[in-house]
Amino acid sequence: MAKYLGKRIFYLLLTLFIVITITFFLMKLLPGTPLTNEQKLSPEQRELILKQYGLTKPVWQQYLIYVAGIFHGNFGTSFQFSDQAVSYLISSRIGPSLLLGLQAMIVGVIPGILFGALGAIKKNTWVDTGTTIVSILGISIPSFVLAVLLQYYVGLKLGWFPIADWGGFAYTVLPTLALAASPFADTARFIRTEMVDVLNSDYIELATAKGLSRMQVIFHHALRNSLIPVVTIIGPLAVNIMTGSMVIENIFSVPGIGEQFVKSILTNDYPTIMAVTIVYSVMLMVVLLITDIIYGVIDPRIRLTGKSN
């Protein structure tokens, strides 16, 4: 276990290093500096500002400084908001994003499990058809379309929840729902397939044969065994939510890192783009690592050899 963990963390750091290096040099490849549109500057002023951002040094020095800075939590200064440290920009914005992400995960996965299980138990009935249709819709309709519809019909027409901005719990409801749709549908589909398999297995037949009630069989034996593989889709679901958050936060004006990412892309704020890229990668890698560990712990049949799946 310790050996496996060490290996995984080594790969994690290696990947992180590669991500940092690639993003850094890609950003250097891009044309333009923060001063491209400032024609009025005299050469001296230009020199001064470039120096302030550390852009006069050779690229390899800039790279070393950047990497060293990251270890101290320093991601440089934003091009867009001068005097604003990128690390501050991100740390002040990560809260809402994490909150929304976690809420969406819970709101998506738990009802998704119940929904999928319902479909499997009532296989080949109208209930099953209904759940299948809902989950196909959930997978197919893009989250940003859903978000705009929710914002207009539930937020504006019905007036149940605020349509945008960030304040208390009420403000999180609509973005959470919009984000949760795709994890919900994915989980429901996944659980249905798993559960249909499990319900056909011998130990379910045995449980029924020894006289357990249908409810007991379903909850104690079938559902529990189909839950284990759900852990494996948590990673992809997290990716889904991260992708969705970029545009959902924009639509609902949530002050999160997704919204910041879009803003910095549109304004060519390279230091912020790099920092958000790194933060996203770290979050995904940590989620993947945790789910792999949990999977090994709850299912002893899986050996943690690093060559699973």
Binding site: L26, V239, T277, Y280, S281, M285
Partner: peptide, 11 residues
């Protein structure tokens, strides 16, 4: 694979 698709796409 451990780099989010979104990040690759945007970069």
């Amino acid at each position: 694979m451990s780099i989010p698709t979104l990040v690759i796409v945007v970069l």
